[in-house]
Design a protein around this nucleic acid. Structure first.
Length: 281
DNA sequence: GCGAAATGGGAAA
DNA sequence: TTCCCCTTTCGCC
């Protein structure tokens, strides 16, 4: 699940359920024991998502709520979580069950519990370290205030395939393998087209489509990129098999033209495309 | 029961 | 470009 939409959804959920609450923090697995000890007893003041990175800002209980939305202060502790390929947050109301498996971080408030497993990153950062992460990320389609111009410039100058550029978090933040495949199909662009050969109008359309798809992903809590007319079952909640045009559909018919979907390794990741709708450059 | 794959990314070579 | 890490799940024996 963890492309950018999942992380923004988690940030909103943690904001709604945990901001303003004092947390008991622990690392039953032990790998984040020191960090958890530094968070224990603090209050979550703020959550923030950028691309696939999730941040929590914790303050001393005495500082809450005066510094809600205050600029980051010297006593703040920033938790940085990146889920990677298979990291997961789970949560529930009331008392958590006894920890099972590899539980990196558990946060418990008076009302809810939150369990984090399998993240690529779970660490405490200084404000400067956090800023360094933000600085190396490209514009995030899910950030309403963001300006796509830096991504436009990077793509326009690059000979690298657009399929590679879209997955590069320093070009655009938050796209993963599913959104990459799907947004390129929807704009009829081959993943192998060099960035500099993507015309401005198509890029503009593609960027707007990314915003639409990812905002829908935040709302739905999953990725659905197909238009109802292109689904086997147009009515009702889309089934998993109806959710994508090409992602994970190697050898199956393209939903637009029935050509078998192709797949190949691009960089270290599998890329999916329709050779008819997205002809090689 | 074991290996591979998965919506990721960083470091090493 | 290759390796390595994180964890769970699923297919295959």
């Amino acid at each position: 699940m963890p492309e950018g939409h999942s992380i923004h959804r988690l940030a909103r959920r943690h904001d709604r359920l945990l901001v303003g609450h004092r947390v008991a923090a622990s690392s039953p697995q032990g790998r984040f024991a020191e960090g958890a000890a530094l968070l224990d007893g603090r209050v979550l003041a703020q959550t923030h998502a950028r691309g696939k990175h999730l941040f929590h800002r914790y303050v001393e209980p005495a500082a809450w709520p005066q510094d809600r939305d205050a600029p980051s202060g010297p006593d703040d502790r920033w938790l940085h979580v990146h889920l990677g390929l298979y990291g997961k947050w789970a949560d529930g109301r009331g008392e958590p069950e006894a920890p099972r498996g590899a539980l990196r971080l558990r946060l418990v408030s008076d009302a809810h519990w939150f369990d984090l497993r399998g993240p690529t990153a779970c660490e405490l950062l200084t404000p400067g370290e956090r800023q360094a992460i933000l600085d190396r990320l490209g514009p995030d389609p899910l950030d309403p205030a963001c300006d796509p111009a830096p991504a436009t410039r990077r793509i326009g100058r690059s000979r690298a395939p657009i399929g590679t550029l879209l997955m590069d978090q320093s070009v655009v933040a938050g796209i993963g393998n599913v959104y990459r495949a799907e947004v390129l199909l929807r704009s009829r662009v081959s993943p192998f087209l060099p960035g500099r050969d993507l015309d401005a109008t198509t890029w503009s359309h593609l960027w707007e489509d990314l915003k639409v798809l990812m905002e829908a992903g935040v709302r739905a809590g999953r990725i659905v990129t197909t238009e109802p007319d292109h689904r086997e079952r147009p009515a009702g909640r889309p089934r998993r098999v109806d959710a994508t045009y090409v992602y994970g559909r190697t050898g199956l018919p393209c939903r637009i033209c029935d050509t078998p979907v192709e797949a190949a390794e691009l960089g270290a990741r599998r890329v999916f495309w329709c050779p008819t709708c997205q002809p090689d450059p």
